[in-house]
Design a protein around this nucleic acid. Structure first.
Lengths: 255, 255
DNA sequence: TGTGCAATGTAACATACGTTATTGAAAACG
DNA sequence: CGTTTTCAATAACGTATGTTACATTGCACA
């Protein structure tokens, strides 16, 4: 289904050929699996076999300490690829769990070997994906190390917002937002109670409207300022294309 | 000089051919630069041109907020590669600065293109390096989000210790340790004062001896327990090779 | 071989955030 | 359609860590 999100995202960065499209399309329809919400897709310690492409739904990567302390280390949105080439490692150092119901396509080692040999544009696009994911992880390090609770949450919301927008999953100034306050707590290293307090503060300042499972961001600039958010780490611009162009896919693709 | 550390590290994971050795050797002697301590090698916002291989000395990646808050997001030790393929991005989202005097080799885009086309073993080794760096960044997220000050510092020391040992840079139970308490503070998201308090605590419990620029770890197991350290994320084992084999390079290479 | 600056150490005090507990409101479910 | 469970909200209280300030040590360099 939402192979569209992957292609849209990658094409923001590299122009893919018709053949590239066919390859990606085939890979994402061959071995599809479905999961319910709040379920593990992969567990720490397992041998990684395939690379997972999120077709729909939200998931997360998380780690746990012996005593149960849990940290969400990243979120996966539709169009995200879990870890290009993970299968060269012997075992997973983290788990992947769903937030909502999720559909994934399993991408085999053979698929990546073929891509590496025959589809250089896709290789570049996958490297871009890999480098951006690394940059996101660094930015989370920055957030957890230096940002206050309010800045941290504002920053995370900006990041999710921009990533959803790039994947074509925002409607106007709002989007689906299935994360619970507990999820936000696990991702930001805060307690649930403090996440609650902080969300109220963001609401009180009119920076967000968050109700049910919908988030609205009436003024992205203000939210970005509140979170000391600098979008450079998402590397959404390429070859002179500007961040503002996001949201107008036809223009962007033409660039 | 310390191309040895890179090769030793990579060979822990993939057996490289004699030709691979020649290629790496040439790349790491062609364009070498030297820097003093506490100096920037690359600055946020610049266009990435080359990939940097650390030949000797310690460096770090760091980010800064507008108001000056600074976070070290990773350390580079001899044999580390800064970011395979960064040059596909338009601009750096972080800076790289030296801790000690540092020598680096600049690896060009052409070098990576050539490797990609002709040296599959090196490609695999570079992917391993990339995946391990990602795993380290996730583990830092875990540390900053969930570990207490003492756990955080103990964990970081274990990580550095194992990475140095893999690079062949430990002597018995001690190693060079040029990080100041300020560096540790920037890396762990703690204040300098609290880093000082916490180091005293680690010393008092006999977990570390840290004096001048030398660190000794009399009992790695105990330090690992104090930091809730699980070495799996460093992916130092491969094809049945065990972590214990680290430190006996000839055996390891024979595996 | 001082002399200056950076790094370390210590103390007193401040605070952002955590913990525990309870309640109400939605969802999920049988 | 009630029942159960999860999620959100709020309050009272506790604490790990931050801040400011200053003293001490150690090392680079003149």
């Amino acid at each position: 289904m939402s192979l569209a999100s992957l292609v849209r995202k990658l094409e923001q960065f590299v122009r893919l050929s018709p053949v590239d499209h066919v390859i990606l399309n085939r890979a994402s329809t061959e071995r599809v699996r479905h999961f319910g919400p709040r379920v593990d897709i992969v567990r720490e310690g397992e041998k990684p076999k395939d690379v997972h492409l999120i077709l729909s739904g939200w998931a997360c990567r998380y780690k746990q300490l012996e005593d149960g302390r849990r940290q969400v280390v990243s979120f996966f949105l539709p169009g995200d690829i879990c870890d290009v080439n993970v299968f060269i490692l012997r075992e997973m150092d983290h788990s992947i769990g769903t937030i909502t119901a999720v559909s994934i396509a399993d991408l085999s080692r053979e698929f990546f070997d073929k891509v590496a040999a025959e589809h250089p544009r896709i290789v570049t696009a996958f490297w871009w994906e890999t480098l951006v994911n690394a940059a996101i992880q660094r930015e989370w390090t920055m957030s957890l190390g230096q940002r206050t609770a309010l800045e941290r949450i504002a920053h995370l919301l900006c990041e999710i917002w921009l990533r959803l927008r790039l994947a074509g999953l925002t409607q106007g100034d709002s989007c689906d937002f299935p994360l619970t306050q507990g999820d936000l707590a696990d991702a930001t290293g805060l307690s649930k109670v403090h996440v609650n307090r902080t969300l109220q503060e963001l609401r009180a300042e009119g920076l967000i409207v968050l109700k049910g499972k919908t988030l609205s961001v009436p003024n992205l600039d203000r939210l970005m300022r509140a979170g000391l958010f600098n979008p450079n780490y998402l590397h959404m611009d390429h070859e002179g294309r500007q961040l503002d162009a996001v949201g107008t896919p036809s223009d962007a693709a033409a660039g």
